[in-house]
Design a protein around this nucleic acid. Structure first.
Lengths: 87, 87
DNA sequence: ATAGTATTTAGATATTTGTCTAAATATACA
DNA sequence: TGTATATTTAGACAAATATCTAAATACTAT
């Protein structure tokens, strides 16, 4: 869960997730949306992958990234627990 | 919102929130729950305060900290939006 | 006033993080 | 086979972060 919070704690990475909400994209397409170098985006994608927030699938010479929202449920559960204050 | 993700991106701070779920506590009581120095906890509390995840109220020589979960709703909303994948 | 308790602020330090450029790897295709 | 394209890995560096000790502030009570 730590990894997920870590992954979410960056505006660029959150923006990547928002992009992937619309449609799956290749690393290159994602890079195009930002003014950040390819390697930096690649690094962000790696963190998102580690958190299991995205899935990477190779198709020929491209790598397609897609959202994986199952981990989001876990976070929401934790947040709900916090919200259910005892006193 | 950035501040909230930042505040949540630390196990100690998340644990503080879990403690405050049970009951309001003074800074000193919170410090007792950890093996971390008072000043460090004070710093964590400050970040939580900045994120508006906790509220601090002075009572005599003590400062009582309590959960504020209204900000949590904002995060949940964002997460739900991410979960509602288009394709 | 003075002493004691609660908490924060200041300043230092080691670690982590986000970014970059250059190089490496992998695939496509002529 | 050789060249172009897509992406990642490696290594460096500045900025942010978590922690500490020492000092400052604020309140209580003798």
């Amino acid at each position: 869960m730590n990894n997920v919070f870590k992954a979410l704690n960056d505006p660029t990475r959150r923006e990547i997730l928002e992009l992937l909400r619309e449609k799956d994209m290749t690393a290159g397409e994602i890079v195009e949306q930002f003014r950040i170098s390819g390697p930096s985006i690649s690094h962000h994608l790696d963190l998102l992958k580690q958190a299991k927030l995205v899935i990477a699938e190779k198709e020929g010479q491209f790598i397609y990234y897609s959202l994986n929202t199952t981990v989001v449920d876990e976070i929401m559960k934790w947040l709900l627990q916090i919200k259910s204050k005892k006193k």
